[in-house]
Design a protein around this nucleic acid. Structure first.
Lengths: 204, 204
DNA sequence: GTTCAGGTAAACCGATCGGTCAAGAAACGG
DNA sequence: CCGTTTCTTGACCGATCGGTTTACCTGAAC
């Protein structure tokens, strides 16, 4: 019954875009409404608060990238290649964002997590949840890698943790340097963490 | 001539404390003034803008921690021990902050860098500069490590970069998880990055 | 074709934002 | 002691913040 609308989806998309390219606190509800072509009254019809919009937006963002992660980490791909492709996709993605917006955007989860994680428990918890999901892809690949004898099975979690940390740190550094090329360090760093001292020396 | 005051120093300290434990945008000039016991008019007597306060505050913060870094990275200490002590100091420091404020605060530079690095070029540049300084400590230790034959001299910069990235990423994860124990992963991760597969297995 | 939930529009709210201003108080150099 | 400079004070500014309210419109279901 009643009419239908895609205003909710437009608000979610506008929120992701604006918060990612700027920051949570610097983007007002009015700006999100403008970008989405929605009036404030409608905003608060769909979301009880800005926080609730953000929570929904991050769920939506994860939903939108999950298929890409599933493809990259497909069990049909050799585990080491999964990780290499993931490193490359991260770099390409941030490079594209840099070309589009003139600045490195970094990790949308980490950005908002560090910004308001100490002030909004619900958002902190949501980001923590998404971090956990991301790490599962790495753990799965590492277990398959261990099955190939290329990695120690005992330290799968620790290794995935280290790789994830390295990724997040590089995204921070790339953003602060405003240079996506920083992210090319991820591949070599991951290989070191895996104990693979001999990467493709030709391309070095 | 004229009267003297330590209001400037109090403002810098209040700014560091409040922004570190909350965020840049969520802390207003009024709050900083209150915490420092300074009236707004005085604030703008000392600083032309909130941005300028932040820039001065980060210089002041670096100035305050530099002696500790100099001590940790003393050339009199064996290079590997410098890095181990640095890892431990990081953990202890964040643990103390967590005990004091009930939350992991993370890296003050990275926090503000990711928050407003895309919006304020001067602050982004300042954080980038401080990151560079921090990395110099690591590079110096790695060069001394190479002189001991424990590390490859060719990849000093890349290794220091990777270690720094890992540190920043762990600080993000610790903040998002609100758990300082995450930072205990730094030591093992650094050892892997250095190619030292055999840490103290007893304490594992 | 009417009904009515679902959605929109625009005015409005108190609070707070970063920043300004002008007048006065304090303390240093002379 | 005076004059100058430095610092303090508190009122004030327009803009924007997240959020509310109310009346009105629209369209799918019966």
């Amino acid at each position: 019954m009643g009419r239908t609308s895609d205003a909710r989806e437009r608000l979610l998309q506008a929120a992701i875009d604006l918060i990612w390219t700027h920051s949570y606190a610097s983007i007002g509800v009015d700006q999100i409404c403008n970008q989405a072509g929605v009036k404030k009254g409608s905003f608060y019809h769909f979301f009880p608060s800005k926080t609730d919009l953000a929570l929904a937006a991050y769920d939506e963002h994860w939903r939108s990238i999950q298929p890409q992660l599933d493809a990259i980490f497909s069990p049909l791909v050799r585990p080491l290649d999964r990780i290499e492709r993931w490193c490359d996709a991260l770099y390409q993605h941030q490079k594209a964002l840099h070309a589009q917006f003139g600045r490195v955007c970094g990790c949308p989860y980490a950005n908002v997590g560090t910004e308001i994680g100490s002030q909004d428990e619900r958002i902190r918890s949501k980001i923590s949840e998404l971090f956990g999901r991301a790490q599962q892809y790495l753990e799965s690949a590492l277990r398959d890698l261990a099955a190939e004898g290329l990695s120690s099975a005992r330290e799968v979690r620790a290794t995935a943790s280290a790789i994830h940390s390295c990724e997040l740190g590089l995204l921070v550094r790339a953003k602060v340097a405003n240079d996506p090329e920083v992210l090319r360090e991820l591949g070599p760093a991951v290989r070191r963490l895996l104990g693979l001292k001999a990467p493709s020396r030709i391309a070095a």
